[in-house]
Nucleic acid binder design. Sequence first.
DNA 1: CGTCGGGTTGAGTCCATTCAACTTCGGTGG
DNA 2: CCACCGAAGTTGAATGGACTCAACCCGACG
Lengths: 239, 239
Amino acid sequence: MLEPLYLNLGQHDALSEEEKGLLAGAMTIELDFATGQDIVSEGSRPGYSTLIIEGLAARYKVLEDGGRQFTSLQVPGDFVDLHAFLLKTMDHGIIALSPCRVVAADHSRLRAITEQAPHLTRLLWLDTLVDGAIHREWIVAMGRRSKTSHLAHLVCELFVRLQVVKQTNGMSFRLPLSQAELADVLGLSIVHMNRVIGALRRLGVIGWSNYIVTILDWQQLVEIAEFDPTYLSMNREPR
Amino acid sequence: MLEPLYLNLGQHDALSEEEKGLLAGAMTIELDFATGQDIVSEGSRPGYSTLIIEGLAARYKVLEDGGRQFTSLQVPGDFVDLHAFLLKTMDHGIIALSPCRVVAADHSRLRAITEQAPHLTRLLWLDTLVDGAIHREWIVAMGRRSKTSHLAHLVCELFVRLQVVKQTNGMSFRLPLSQAELADVLGLSIVHMNRVIGALRRLGVIGWSNYIVTILDWQQLVEIAEFDPTYLSMNREPR
DNA sequence: CGTCGGGTTGAGTCCATTCAACTTCGGTGG
DNA sequence: CCACCGAAGTTGAATGGACTCAACCCGACG
């Protein structure tokens, strides 16, 4: 059940059986969300933190003019609101972009982990730090990359992240996002989003249909994206 | 000496004298950097984490075409690379934008804090979480705000953050950033950056000269920015 | 068979960029 | 002392990228 979490945390440093047990003991709540439902809503003060077991979710904010911006995409094994454990008040919402199966840990249990299990605490902290590193990479992409490069970078990132939690299939993965939703990731209009996808398709580096993305030329995709996975900290070392 | 750090961490929850002592004991290294110098460089594996006492610094990445994007601005009291304690390898550089006085804590000492001082550990973790919240707000600004609103939002954020560490003077604060550097914050060209600043000036909401920003109409600035400081977690509560 | 939610394409407008020139100001050396 | 220089800021004009508006296609589904 918690396999995706173990894969996610375990990519950075070895997880002991004891630590796995602590996590399993903490994740007591089990929930399902339908596509489009809020897993956590902006302004709320959740008493537990939620982990995705299956499905795709996203953090988002909505502006007064109705514009929406996703600030992250969350895949199986990701703690979507681990930060709420200490930030307390949600400054953004989290929406299920596909049917999501999640488990959650009461904050009192997380607190107990920080009191008794320093190494596991550091791994949870690290998980939020990788989150931050991904945010920084998105800022760079939005500010200084061409739109084509930005999209290519996103595809690279998702492929690598999904591979860690065994959610890829060869060079393909499922990305249940409409082009309108993707536009809210990249900060583009729907029409232009469509043209950017078309550009990458015409170059023959990716295929994209029925919510399945296929990487046809990884080498070229990485070049277009200037993708360097360092920021994902995917090497195992003592933390 | 560590006053800015105490003010910064202390805004979220009370810091005990003992915890202040632990921090003071950890921050053993003292350094100065000149404008333009790298405080930490991309790809390095620093053995200590750096805190700004005085000056302005920024995290940045450079792309192959020479384009630069700042991913955060760091003010006194900010740990510029606390994340390196667990991420190990720097995926970005940190540059001094003005003369900077910094102190640093060896990672072995931070590790000791995580083993012995759970509450202080949570406060340090929280500091990196606020970092992440700021990143998310920047992503929203880059993706879905007008350029004018983006700049207004940045001014609001900096004013509030600087106020916490007593670096404002009435409704003014010093921002030692050239327009070219500011352009690398917002992801704009220099020329357009100049026009966006001009627009806010002409509206009479801010003054900007000699690296001093003055807020002339806070109410209107907040409206243009749609600024809501929730994401900065500036309320004291048990963490 | 009609409708609806995606996806795709064309055309015109607007925003942001580039290229280029010119100003202002502080510093520096003849 | 002042002439010169370079860094930063400002402005105009032309180009190109991204947006809006609008139409049309298509497959799923009732």
